[in-house]
Each structure stands twice: as structure tokens, then as C-alpha cells.
Amino acid sequence: MVTFDSSDLFDSPDSRAFEVDTAIFDVDGTLVDTNYQHALAWYRAFRRYDLTIPLWHIHRAIGMGGDQLIPHVAGEDVARRHAEDLDQAWTEEFRAMVDEVQPFEGARELLAEVKERGFRLVLASSGKQEFVTRFLELIDGRSIADAWTTSEDAEESKPAPDLLQVALAKVSGARGLMIGDSTWDCAAANRLSVPTLAVRTGGFSTEELRAAGAIGVFDSLVDLRRSLDRTPLARPR
């Protein structure tokens, strides 16, 4: 299933709004299948402090970094008292599951085709360096991306736009396009007036992603690659 806002994008009066030179790919949940491991790791981290946060509620916040997720799901008081310890607990819990993580079908092929079409390519993650390094290895990202990011590159994580600003700055990109899997990817991009293409690999519905601002929603990376000519990634403008 593919939904896209404009089948005549490049012939429309507003087409310049979608002219891009840089593709910014989210990593977790978009290129590699991590969202449910993230949710379970956070659940277990909270349980260490006798906090039981329903997994469905945690899942709705995946895409945020820990600085945003903890107060969002557990409240500001918990964040003030336990943020650093919870982040460390999450790291330990996620590290125990990281060997399970695999790339989504078509991830490498999609990146290669976008690069071959002439776009600058940035892999934007707010994850910790040890995990980002591992995930880049899974998709051979270092050999193809022009740049990548980690949590060390931004003061605030999504939905703050810091990471996208850094991603564009690293490649001197003037007009970016976000490719992500969560409503938080869309929210961060919206704050910079950057359009977003979304894939449903993070577990968010088409309706949620469209409501958050995605101009196109795709069931998978394979579907997105097949539809590139109908998107702003048809060619650099």
C-alpha cells in the first residue's frame, strides 16, 4: 500500500516547495528494525524503579530520544529524579537485545539508488554511538552515506529539530527531505519546513503519519524504492 499527496508533484504550482538536494534517512525503525526492542528496553528500565508504564504507551513515544521520552511517558518528576539512571538502565537492557536487530528488506538497495540519483545522503540517528556504529555496519552505511549523526550531535532529540539541522549542516544541504517511520520524525521535520516521506515500519498507521505531516506514506522500503519517481527523490532539483 502506498499513499501520496500529489501524483503530479513536479507539474503543480507548489512543486518548488518539494525540490530537495539532500535525503535525510532516520536509522532506527526506518532502516533497521529496532522499535519494539526499544520499547521493551524502556519498559524494563522503568520496572527497575518500580514504574510500570504500559508498553503501548512507550511504543507511541518511540522515535523520541530518552531526554524527551522519559518525561513524556512517566512525567517530569520521574525525569528530574531518575533520568540519568533510567537512561543507563535502558542502555543495558537494549544492549542485551542488540544482536537481534536486522535491517529492513531493501534498506541498502534504497540508499544506493537515492545516492545514484544524485542526492546528498545523511543517516540521521539520535542513538548512542555504540549502537549507531553497529547499525551502520548492518547496512554498510559508512561506504555510501555522505555523513551520519549520533546523540552526541544534538542537544535535544526529536521532536526538536536539532538533529535535522546538524544533518543538513554536515553536507551543506540547502533543501532536505526526511525519510522516517514515526510521527516524531514528521514533527521534527515540520519545525524546519522539511517535507517527510514515511514508512510504516515503525508501527505507526498511515493516518497517524499523514496527520503528523508526511507527504507520502509507504508500507515498506521496497514500496518506497518502487515509487521514487513519484516523490521528491525522483531527481535533485
Rank of each mutant, 00 (worst) to 15 (best):
E137Y: 06
Y49G: 00
A214Q: 10
A212W: 10
A61G: 14
D87M: 10
R117D: 04
D11V: 00
D8E: 13
L136Y: 06
L224I: 01
W42Q: 04
V217N: 12
P195H: 13
D5Q: 15
S143N: 11
A147S: 13
G63K: 10
T34M: 04
A174W: 09
R95Y: 04
F46Q: 04
I144C: 04
L221R: 03
D26P: 10
L163I: 15
G29W: 03
E84N: 06
G180K: 06
V98S: 11
T3Q: 14
E100C: 02
F94K: 02
A160L: 01
E100L: 14
H38V: 04
V217Y: 12
G202N: 05
W148K: 01
E109F: 04
D14T: 14
G127P: 00
K128P: 00
R48F: 01
D87Q: 11
H57Q: 13
M1T: 14
S126W: 00
Y36P: 00
E105I: 01
V132R: 01
G75C: 08
L123W: 09
T206A: 12
M178N: 13
L9M: 15
T133G: 03
T206D: 15
G176P: 10
Q37R: 04
S125D: 06
T201S: 15
D21G: 14
V166D: 08
E100P: 00
F204D: 03
D33T: 02
F25G: 09
P54V: 07
E155I: 13
F10K: 10
T52A: 14
V98K: 09
D223K: 09
T22Q: 06
Y36K: 07
G29A: 07
P103W: 08
L228E: 03
R80D: 09
F18E: 11
L40Y: 13
M97H: 11
A189L: 12
V78N: 03
A23I: 02
S227F: 12
L197V: 05
D26M: 10
A89L: 03
L31W: 06
L197W: 04
E105V: 05
T52R: 14
V27I: 12
L121Q: 10
W90K: 13
W42I: 03
A214R: 10
G180S: 11
K115L: 08
I53T: 02
T183W: 00
Y43T: 12
V132S: 05
I179H: 03
A41I: 02
L51Q: 06
D11T: 11
Y36C: 03
L233K: 09
M97Y: 08
F119N: 11
D21M: 12
L111S: 01
D21N: 12
S12G: 12
S157E: 00
H59A: 06
R81G: 08
L192D: 13
L86I: 14
A189K: 07
P195S: 08
